[in-house]
């Protein structure tokens, strides 16, 4: 398999088969919290994708050149530290140089500091033994997969707003049921892309 198809398969697997939210159940908090409107869901997903790629670019070298092979158990704490710092840095840089993007992302950027999907993807890259470029594409794919899940689910939720739902299911219960059904539909992708 040449490197292009390998990268394509990593990307496809990250978006569909191993979808962060719907298959791995990471990042459920923003998935349920920020998916009420398509607009905000999109902003949140863009921010998550950006942070995922940048964090992977930083955490992969840290793991392979500093922590491996003796201190791999420091992975979690160091990654959390680095991701939190990166999010802050991205916020400062965006605010200074690309103000429109900063305004569009708004509150969602700082919220990502504590998003487990970001920590999840950086650690999965290590666990799966991916190379640097593959890791970057895996992170990009995971971000796009997150975006796909968010946009799909926000569409579902906008429909739910208009539906006549029984009183006892209104609000969170029907949202969770809908989430499980959307997740179930992603089971159909199992096996594609490896």
């Amino acid at each position: 398999m040449n490197s292009n198809t390998a990268i394509a398969s990593v990307l496809l697997a990250a978006i569909l088969t191993n979808n962060m939210v719907l298959s791995k159940f990471l990042g459920i908090c923003p998935f349920l919290g920020v998916s009420k409107k398509t607009g905000t869901a999109f902003s949140m997903s863009v921010a998550v994708t950006l942070v995922m790629v940048v964090s992977t670019a930083v955490t992969w070298p840290i793991y392979h050149f500093i922590l491996a092979p003796d201190y791999t158990y420091l992975e979690t704490i160091v990654f959390i530290l680095v991701i939190a710092a990166i999010v802050q840095l991205i916020e400062i840089v965006l605010k200074r140089y690309i103000k429109p993007v900063y305004n569009a992302l708004g509150i969602y950027l700082p919220l990502i500091t504590t998003n487990c999907a970001v920590l999840g993807i950086t650690m999965l890259n290590i666990t799966n033994g991916l190379g640097f470029v593959q890791s970057l594409f895996n992170a990009l794919g995971a971000g796009l997969g997150f975006m796909l899940a968010m946009l799909l689910f926000s569409g579902v939720r906008e429909r739910l707003e208009m539906a006549d739902i029984p009183e006892f299911l209104k609000g969170l219960p029907i949202t969770l049921i809908a989430a499980s059904l959307v997740s179930l539909s992603f089971l159909g992708f199992a096996g594609i892309g490896g």
């Binding site: 420091l74 704490i77 160091v78 710092a85």
Partner: peptide, 10 residues
């Protein structure tokens, strides 16, 4: 290691 990474980030 953790202290240095934290310091650099800070």
């Amino acid at each position: 290691i953790v202290a240095v990474i934290g310091l650099i980030a800070g």
